[in-house]
């Protein structure tokens, strides 16, 4: 379903993206294609929603405040509550999970006051308790994710 070029673009630059004035040209050199082809392929992957962006994953707590929040929402209200929780810019992940606490979302904001305000407004609006579980310690640095494409041949060793 992904071309060989797409597989490399998905897998090989999840970290250590080139910090070079022409990063896509540096990637192109490694893949043996043109800079324009790299840019086009990344645009296609973005349109297909296979990638969300090329960018920075920031360590929680360094440039603002964040928390993981959970709610136990009655089944018949779940879709409605989820929809307006998602409408907040501060909410960046929002999942249904199979548990009594069935709605889980991450909130990020510029500071603790702004974060607490969003938590309070969501609680007030829904009339439901919002459980906030801010990070105490992160143990596993997100190093990206080996997609393990089955037909990806090992690179020749020099």
């Amino acid at each position: 379903m992904f071309t060989r070029t797409e597989q490399h673009l998905l897998n090989d630059w999840q970290r250590d993206f080139p910090l070079d004035p022409r990063p896509y040209a540096r990637m192109a050199e490694q893949l043996g294609i043109s800079e324009a082809e790299v840019i086009d392929a990344l645009e296609t992957l973005k349109k297909q929603r296979a990638i969300s962006r090329v960018g920075a994953v920031v360590k929680p707590g360094t440039i603002g405040a964040s928390t993981l929040a959970a709610m136990a929402v009655p089944g018949e209200r779940l879709e409605d509550v989820a929809e307006w929780v998602s409408a907040y810019d501060e909410v960046n992940h929002n999942y249904e999970r199979d548990h009594r606490f069935n709605l889980w979302f991450v909130i990020t904001a510029s500071d603790a006051d702004a974060l607490n305000n969003v938590l309070a407004v969501i609680g007030d609006e829904s009339g439901l308790p919002v459980m906030s579980l801010p990070l105490v310690e992160a143990y596993h640095i997100d190093l990206g994710f080996d997609l393990n494409f089955p037909h990806q041949e090992p690179e020749a060793q020099p």
């Binding site: 603002g64 964040s66 501060e90 960046n92 992940h93």
Partner: peptide
């Protein structure tokens, strides 16, 4: 406890910009 994800209502990058 194990909580599998079911519906994904939203998945975007973090937004720390002040409102």
């Amino acid at each position: 406890d194990v909580l599998f994800s079911r519906r994904r209502f939203k998945q975007t990058g973090a937004c720390y910009r002040p409102r």
